[in-house]
């Protein structure tokens, strides 16, 4: 297993050349890259990533940060059956907690659809343009706040 990050650097430089001022590099580790973009620009960056060869979404993770009054959505994108297959690309965005609306990336990757629906349900982040933002895993009569928000406490564990 190589522990160098030359390939990852080269890949990131390719993206940086196109979106110089839009993206913010978070880390480059062996086989892992993470960049952050603003929700307004994420669609273009995502389309470019897909053209590069990252063709499947492995996970969409939403995280709640009450301390900075923000919520984060991270798309982990993998490449199936091409030369980038060993790299996991993380594409993050942050949005205000008061009005969490981000654009949906289902038009870029269809595989993001159910992951985004789950994130909507578990954190209450709305994905604009998603075909079905509705109840998925929680019971039909769920009336509480979305469970993965930090102010939701487990019973007996306050």
């Amino acid at each position: 297993m190589s522990l160098t990050t030359e390939r990852e650097r080269a890949l990131l430089d390719k993206i940086k050349a196109k979106f110089e001022d839009v993206i913010k590099e978070k880390y480059v580790k062996p086989k892992r890259i993470r960049i952050d973009v603003s929700p307004q620009k994420i669609f273009e960056v995502a389309s470019f990533l897909k053209a590069l060869g990252f063709n499947q979404v492995a996970s969409v993770a939403g995280t709640d940060y009450p301390s900075s009054n923000e919520m984060e959505v991270v798309y982990h994108i993998v490449a199936i059956d091409n030369e980038l297959r060993d790299i996991v690309f993380a594409l993050g965005e942050r949005v205000s907690r008061d009005n969490p609306i981000v654009p949906s990336l289902t038009d870029v990757w269809k595989s993001a659809s159910y992951h985004e629906q789950e994130t909507y349900e578990m954190l209450g982040i709305k994905f604009e343009g998603h075909p079905r933002l509705e109840r998925l895993l929680l019971p039909e009569d769920w009336a509480d706040i979305p469970p993965l928000r930090k102010e939701f406490k487990l019973p007996g564990r306050e």
Partner: peptide, 28 residues
């Protein structure tokens, strides 16, 4: 592909643990 995404903030507990399972992807 089974994947975990763990965020740690330096405490003994994970700050956020995201479990991405293959069966969930079968839904689509």
């Amino acid at each position: 592909t089974m994947a975990y995404y763990i965020i740690s903030d330096g405490k003994p507990y994970p700050y956020r643990l995201k479990l991405s399972v293959p069966s969930f992807r079968c839904l689509s």
